[in-house]
Design a binder for these strands. Structure first.
Lengths: 131, 131
DNA sequence: TATAATTGTTAGGCAAGCCTAACAAAAGGA
DNA sequence: TCCTTTTGTTAGGCTTGCCTAACAATTATA
């Protein structure tokens, strides 16, 4: 599998597509447009770019499907999002909104090693708290 | 003072200028070019953009000076860089290189509130460790 | 000081992402 | 079914940030 690098922006689109597919079984461009606060035209652009890189299957006026490669990538990103949110909420006591905001921004740039350590740290921390 | 937002990229240029000025009293475009791994032409571009936003004073073939506004911004960014590096090194036990790499990436996107909490957390953590 | 090497600038180009406006297709309601 | 509304696409344009190549200014050295 060719792991074409994705920009932060495209990762956000993919994450949005994945989450909507998980919860509704389908996604429409207009939803993506609303969730990410971009124009419908920008969504069309992004869908083209994601399809070109084979993260989704998609054609003009057709439904939006995610490929296995896309799922893998989306899981990776949402996994980071979740752990980062937990860290900011449980360890630093930020509000849910601000925790998620920071997670959104950092999930695209943190290195894998740093992420792994943060994950372990956060889960141990929560355990200590609960004991 | 107009606090024109700076992109991650321009923040990196400004940080580099500030650090060089602090340690040497002057900076040359070629040094910036080497440190940031970009062409000399890109540095000229960036200097124009930073000067336009009044973070530096600069003119064709002239020396590069940082404005008070630039110093403030640079201190903010380098401060974040330092705290983030400490967090990754001391709390998560990453190597100095990987800690700094993550700091570089995150310093531009973390919210001020999250940063404040992380700073307090990290300093308390170090204290506990040393007691 | 004249020349060579280094450094800085300009011009022109490219890709990513975003936008609006106009148009096309699809979906929903009378 | 026809008409309206909604959704999606296209075209054209803009900014940021990077590049190379050619040229200009500066600095260093013979």
């Amino acid at each position: 599998m060719t792991t074409t690098a994705l920009s932060s922006g495209l990762e956000d689109y993919l994450e949005c597509i994945y989450n909507n597919l998980e919860s509704n079984g389908s996604v429409k461009a207009i939803e993506i447009s609303k969730e990410l606060n971009v124009s419908r035209a920008s969504v069309t652009d992004a869908l083209h770019r994601l399809a070109e890189k084979e993260y989704i299957n998609y054609q003009r006026y057709g439904s939006i499907d995610i490929t296995p490669k896309g799922v893998e990538k989306a899981k990776e990103v949402t996994g980071k999002h979740h752990v980062l949110t937990q860290f900011f909420e449980k360890v630093l006591n930020l509000s849910e909104a601000e925790a998620s905001e920071n997670a959104c921004r950092i999930e695209h740039v943190i290195t894998n090693e740093a992420f792994k350590r943060l994950k372990v740290f956060t889960s141990n921390y929560k355990k200590r708290k609960n004991d």
